[in-house]
Design a protein around this nucleic acid. Sequence first.
DNA 1: CTACTTTCGCAACGCTGTTGCCAAAGTGCA
DNA 2: TGCACTTTGGCAACAGCGTTGCGAAAGTAG
Lengths: 359, 359
Amino acid sequence: MAGANLPAMRSHNTALVLDLLRTAGEGGISRLELAERTGLTPQAVSKITARLREEGLAAEAGRRASTGGKPATVLRLVPDAGHAVGIQLDRDELRAVLVELDGTVVAARHAEVDLGAGAEAVLGAVVELAGELVERGGDTLLGVGVGAPGPLDHTHGVLHRVTGFPEYDGFPLRDALAERLGVPVVVDKDSNAAALGLAVGGEGGSFACLLLGTGLGAGLVIGDTVHRGARTGAGEFGHQVVQLDGPPCHCGDRGCIEALCLAAVARGDVAEAARVLGVGASNLAGLLDIDLVLLGGRTIAAAPEPFVRGVAAVLDERARREGGLGTTIPVRVAPGGDRGVAEGAAQLLLAPLFGRADG
Amino acid sequence: MAGANLPAMRSHNTALVLDLLRTAGEGGISRLELAERTGLTPQAVSKITARLREEGLAAEAGRRASTGGKPATVLRLVPDAGHAVGIQLDRDELRAVLVELDGTVVAARHAEVDLGAGAEAVLGAVVELAGELVERGGDTLLGVGVGAPGPLDHTHGVLHRVTGFPEYDGFPLRDALAERLGVPVVVDKDSNAAALGLAVGGEGGSFACLLLGTGLGAGLVIGDTVHRGARTGAGEFGHQVVQLDGPPCHCGDRGCIEALCLAAVARGDVAEAARVLGVGASNLAGLLDIDLVLLGGRTIAAAPEPFVRGVAAVLDERARREGGLGTTIPVRVAPGGDRGVAEGAAQLLLAPLFGRADG
DNA sequence: CTACTTTCGCAACGCTGTTGCCAAAGTGCA
DNA sequence: TGCACTTTGGCAACAGCGTTGCGAAAGTAG
């Protein structure tokens, strides 16, 4: 509920243009194309791009072949005009990346860590790993993004009860890190970070990013925006109940997807794990009418095909039941590999520049 | 992905002010209060409200007691400056209402109908019932909104496979009605219409509106906006699977909430029906982190207390498991009674005036 | 070389919300 | 009653946004 004024309009349009420049990548994009895609007049685009070039965020990059008249000048984002550090803080390891405006990773670090060693030790390890990258970012560093196991409070950057490590409940990770590093810090759930990274990376529309590793979580992107919900706790996919009065879960409930899935994995029954995951994905797809399901996390990485096949089978069946009008929802392995969360965490700071209200 | 210009900014701010006027109701609201709530300057608000008064949409309505200076002039929405007709098209009955800008119902009609009698007969019944109301709306009529059983295509106003009446699959309800009535028509799922009505009626934030009647559907409001999903099919709550390999559902799957719930109702076990509904609501609440669950529909209306109690019990347990930081999600009966869907359907045309992108 | 197309910037413009200022209409106190 | 003060709200000038009108630049086509 905010009123709009001229500066707001200007920054909106600037972000729009900047996002198109980013999406265009190395190939670049012409002013007229920018005008068409934004709905603005060519003259407005010229003014906006002139400002961006003055600020060093954009640059001319050659010309395109003529189509019968004056050849178009290609504009490009200047990637190193801004940087962000992204960190994945997992239960047993730490990953950090330094990325440029266009998402390119220019440095990466990795370390082992034990959450059980206490907040002070973990914080020290993060600062050590990220400190160097922060320095390399220099003046153009926008800040540090952290993806951590949920649930947590994204707005305030406070951890909640991390499964297996209850002592972190209420730990103000964001403020502690911001003080030590001296730069802005944003904290989000690892699955949300991964989802944001994929959304910025080109997955349009609405999709779910399911991460199966030591736990099971979901990042939901609805209409190009990460959906976090009222208390930023959305995406509790692991504890969706799909079997009334089923086997007990460590969360205290019964028949949770996570419990069924991890148990099946533990006894080597990948097909059943995939089927359970598929039922959960199918529920989610029906409820939210999403376009795509992406699977990620260590367990998936260890055996991608059977999981993709199993989940797809359940979704196909749903589509078949819905008749001719129902479309099968594609299932894929989330790109990005084991750095997906860290890269997405960096986007927590970069994305707002491009008009994505996910910061 | 649209560029903003001055007219867009103007209509945004106008809608903002208009929505606050509507929300303020009979009590009205002062210019300075509007300025505070929108973030605009008092001068901008003065200009905007002057325009609204010229157009007849707003009017001055007395003064407020002084707080030490010049007393504030109270502004009010002029309710009959605009009208919309809302229709609930159910499997066996028809309801229509004529509502004013502020949501007040100024006329209501009811009729019995049999979907099985064929599209032509049903269309005729709708035209007969709504025609009179459309005329009463006169020049100020914005159009007709229809809430029908899902699934359907909101964007194109085309019905899909209505459970029990497969012959309607592909029926272009919107265009057929628009031609007969000669006014704009918008079609949406009944549960979405009900949810929109509640959102406009004052339920803020994010909530789910679950309708249990001849079927079971959900309307999802996420961040003050009805969430319809990529193919406007979101809210397929009834066929969420909560019991792997459970009893077969008429949809072809097994263990759907709808099947379990309706079976429990059929055998008189309301407590079990409420528990199943509660598990579904709990899944939904965890996945989307919503603020509130509202229950509606005939079956709920017949026995509200046990359903509310049963659903609340499941949600309470989830909150307890999540520990101190988890908040219990309140459960209530959806206000609006048996006209909730029709009134919400009218809002399909009124809401866009107030900046709600649900039209 | 001429005609045409396409790109793109300069200058004037219209319209937005903002700022500076002042009048109006109350309260509170001497 | 009179003066000081607070709050409301409009008038006028203003800055800044995208838009429009127009012309220069830089190609292709014949």
